[in-house]
Design a protein around this nucleic acid. Structure first.
Length: 424
RNA sequence: AGAGAGGUGGCAGAGUGGUCGAAUGCGGCGGAUUCGAAAUCCGCUAUACGGGCAACCGUAUCGGGGGUUCGAAUCCCUUCCUCUCUGCCA
């Protein structure tokens, strides 16, 4: 959520940013927000002064009652009735205006950082750099959905039987590989200074609002109506909400957390081409890294996160590239996003395995996550997160890129984690 | 799930209709004392919104919402949450 003060003081910058994100009704929405803000201030002032007078009269009435001047008290009471009516209508209007303003603010996406390229779709994303070597596969190379059957390591049909499509069952070396990757990612994050968190995987409504899944993306989360809890779509939600409604001491900053959780996504409406096998699931495993920093350090932190993720891909010996997303392809809440993709050799396409974003104050404003800046004023912090990493597509690429007639050779870094060096 | 208790400042914990944004203690910050420290003493120590260049002033907030009253932390209604015991259970 953008801050009203920013919209008011930097209107042109806000409009330019919204345009870059291809937000359609920017001019009208911004004007409406500013207009509502004007009215809100007037109502507040009017309400407060009437209330101040009423408070003063109440004190006087108390004194008069005490001294036995009933008639005097009654005179003043008549005036308080008027004031009461006034404050009541003012506060009702105020609530209405605040609500309207809030609804408009929820609609506005975050402003993109200056470095975000112009563009509408994934085709306009900027390739920042590539790393690793694309493998030369044998002529009879198979996509991962064939390989997992061949080696009997992931079973979609069993998942369908016990739950539904998009809920794979990992077996044998497939299950062990999952566990190995999770441990590898967590260990690497810890070595990079992240504190490991194991959060709940159901969250309440307030947490959904805090990180921006609610109110808009309600349909994307699984919801337990009986207890009004949501299955998390990413551990970003619980881990960032740890700091909701907090004023964080400067010496605790930056906050660097990591956590492994399963992630649950309904993916309503997003099924179709290119979602075979492990490419898109309802439940998958992910290790997430989260940082909360002072505003002036957040881009440095984002670079560090991208470097960390790249390092993981290098250790896994996967060919990858780093993209800077264009204005039209970025998420609603982000100011700058880097996607990391790995080359899936048998499918012949890039697969997104990580997304690292700086949300600046956009999430923090909803979360009310602040610190005390120089001079004693509270100020919003910047929040960031990135996948480090999401497992399914990593597994897909590992299987496809490393297939041989003699089995699948795993990268050296995983051998001790798996307890084996080859699948098959 | 059944029965009971309770939600007050960073924490602990008073406060049952006005003088309460709220005693006291702890913690934190500043100062005095000290060669330095401990101990002791003094002062300060919530957030949001509005007004003001500022000092500062006003308003709201004692889980949330509503009500009674000139006036509510305090009374009433409602809702959420937490804890204890019993039950069930990894």
């Amino acid at each position: 959520m953008l801050q009203v003060s920013v919209i008011k003081e930097q209107t042109d910058r806000v409009l330019a940013g919204l345009a870059k994100k291809h937000y359609k009704t920017a001019a009208a929405d911004v004007a409406a927000i500013l207009d509502l803000d004007q009215r809100r201030r007037q109502l507040q002032t009017s309400h407060d002064s009437a209330q101040a007078e009423a408070n003063d009269l109440a004190r006087q009435i108390g004194q008069l009652m005490k001294s036995g001047d009933k008639a005097g008290a009654e005179t003043l009471k008549a005036r308080t009735a008027e004031l009461k009516q006034h404050t009541k209508t003012a506060s009702e209007e105020l609530a209405q205006v605040e609500h309207e303003q809030q609804q408009l603010l929820y609609k506005l996406p975050n402003l993109p950082h200056a470095s975000v390229p112009e563009g509408r779709s994934a085709a306009d994303n900027e390739v920042v750099r590539e790393g690793g070597q694309k493998p030369a596969l044998p002529a009879d190379a198979q996509p991962h959905w064939e390989l997992i059957k061949k080696y009997d390591i992931i079973d979609f049909d069993l998942g369908i039987k016990i739950t539904g499509a998009g809920f794979p069952v990992y077996k044998n070396q497939g299950a062990r590989l999952q566990r190995a990757l999770i441990n590898f990612f967590l260990d690497e994050a810890r070595d990079a200074g992240y504190t490991e968190i194991q959060p709940p995987i159901l969250v309440n409504e307030a947490s959904g609002y805090g990180t921006g899944q609610l109110p808009d993306k309600e349909g994307q989360m699984y919801h337990d109506a009986q207890d009004n809890l949501y299955l998390i779509p990413t551990s970003e939600v619980p881990i960032t909400n740890l700091y909701r409604d907090e004023i964080i001491a400067t010496d605790k900053l930056p906050i660097k957390n990591t956590g492994y959780t399963p992630c649950f996504r309904r993916e309503a409406g997003s099924w179709g081409a290119d979602v075979r096998g492990l490419n898109r699931l309802h439940q998958f495993d992910k290790v997430e890294i989260v940082q909360i920093t002072e505003p002036e350090r957040s881009y440095e932190a984002l670079d560090g996160m991208v470097a960390h993720i790249e390092n993981l891909l290098q250790k896994l010996e996967l060919p990858y590239r780093v993209l800077r997303l264009c204005g039209g392809d970025m998420s609603f809440t982000s100011a700058l996003t880097y996607d990391l993709e790995v080359w899936s050799a048998a499918q012949g396409r890039w697969l997104e395995v990580s997304s690292a974003s700086n949300f600046e104050t956009y999430q923090a404003n909803r979360l009310k996550c602040r610190y005390r800046a120089e001079g004693g004023k509270t100020q919003l912090l910047h929040t960031l997160n990135g996948s480090a990493l999401a497992l399914p597509r990593i597994v897909a690429a590992l299987l496809e890129n490393n297939q041989t007639s003699d089995g699948i050779n795993l990268p050296a870094v995983l051998h001790s984690y798996c307890g084996f060096s080859k699948i098959g």
